[in-house]
Design a protein around this nucleic acid. Structure first.
Lengths: 220, 220
DNA sequence: TGTACATCAGTGAACGCGCGTTCACTGATGTAC
DNA sequence: TGTACATCAGTGAACGCGCGTTCACTGATGTAC
């Protein structure tokens, strides 16, 4: 916090940028990310459309910023869990679910239908690997046994040879690598079905499915 | 096939409708479902925009039709599996993955980010429960054991009391109900992450993760 | 087989709309002497 | 403390665009006698 003395103008700029993003999220909540309109945001803020170009180069830059913030908020929540000692895997699962339910549109911006032609800038994939790193630590600490099934074992062997994504974790066992991927994949399975509304009308509680899945991941 | 003698005009109408949908899919593949434009489709077919209103009441009706066709194609693939005797669960998994990979945009139209404000007409949810019914039969045939973990067991008990979605299957055991939900949720977890590109750049083969998950579901 | 009429596919003009983005500008805020 | 200048937020007009949708119409195809 030393070199970050902000002039009033810089402070103001940042304030307006935040307000723009806030209105952008509201708009996404109402009509989806693809309908996001700079002009509509400006009008909602009582400004003229072109004024926003003082704060964002164009529409794409705004969307990228929203995606970056979304990743960042989840990564920060994960890092906060990692900062506390003790068994972390269950806690990571809860944090993930809480984050997803807190703002489904934010969830879908990150894990939903990809925007055709959009490629996330590299710093965003960096944030994603921060999360993976936290998850891998928790999986390694859980010291999982090798999987029983033949195909599951084959996957572990595959992971032992393909660990690019686990760069900072050369000591993670194949079983730990598999646990991380399974954790990620299973929990996103229940969450994406739940948030997309595929359980509504079925008369069951998605929270219990989620807990059950966490159970199978952390058991033993 | 008795009363369905088609006049040439009816045949032609249906042909054009099919071509419109075909171009619609191409357009979705290129720029996403929300960018789907009747005018652009018409132009691509060498027709004027208003001409399409002979075939679809409006844009929404076209999209609904696409979604219905998507559901129908998956349900038909499931029913084809059910028509063959023998253990079906692994085969259903393979069919699901093949269907998803065959056209990722079709997958996302059904299981991706929901369109805000859009509600599927009732006949579509009917198709969805056709699939669930096939899945439940396969799960019942697998005769799964009750789950080991406490939360997993709690979920089974919950399902025993909340079986609205399993209406036609009053004899399905709680373990079978749980297997169906787990199957559905886990496989969609790997598929949605894979198709959204979250595994690209990680250097692992999503097919092996999928097989491993199928393994854990059908084992024992 | 031929004529009269009804049906229906497709056109082109038009409406109103909102979009992203540029540009030249006004007026307020901050900076330098 | 006061003046001269530079910076920068925001405006309003304008550009070109494509959208969904309606409407009155032409011309081809099918139907009835």
């Amino acid at each position: 916090m030393t070199g970050s003395t902000k002039t009033p103008r810089e402070r103001y700029r940042q304030q307006v940028r935040e307000e723009v993003k806030e209105k952008a999220w509201q708009q996404i909540a109402g009509s989806g990310a693809s309908a996001l309109s700079l002009n509509a945001i400006a009008k909602q803020m009582g400004m003229s459309g072109p004024a926003l170009y003082r704060y964002f180069a164009n529409r794409d830059e705004l969307i990228t910023e929203l995606i970056r913030d979304a990743y960042r908020s989840l990564a920060d929540a994960f890092l906060a869990v990692a900062a506390v000692p003790g068994p972390a895997l269950t806690e990571l699962a809860r944090v993930l679910r809480r984050w997803a339910l807190a703002d489904p549109h934010r969830y879908f911006l990150v894990y939903g239908t990809p925007v055709p032609g959009y490629h996330a800038p590299q710093d965003i994939t960096g944030i994603a690997s921060e999360m993976m790193s936290v998850l891998l630590d928790a999986c390694a600490a859980a010291a999982p046994e090798p999987a029983p099934g033949a195909d599951a074992r084959a996957f572990e062997e595959h992971l032992a040879d393909h660990r690019d994504w686990a760069e900072g974790h050369p000591d993670a066992t194949p079983a730990a690598l598999r646990l991380a991927m399974t954790f990620w994949s299973r929990l996103h399975g229940t969450l994406s079905l739940e948030l997309a509304g595929h359980f509504t009308g079925m008369g069951l509680d998605p929270a219990l499915l989620f807990e059950a899945e966490v159970d199978t991941l952390t058991a033993r």
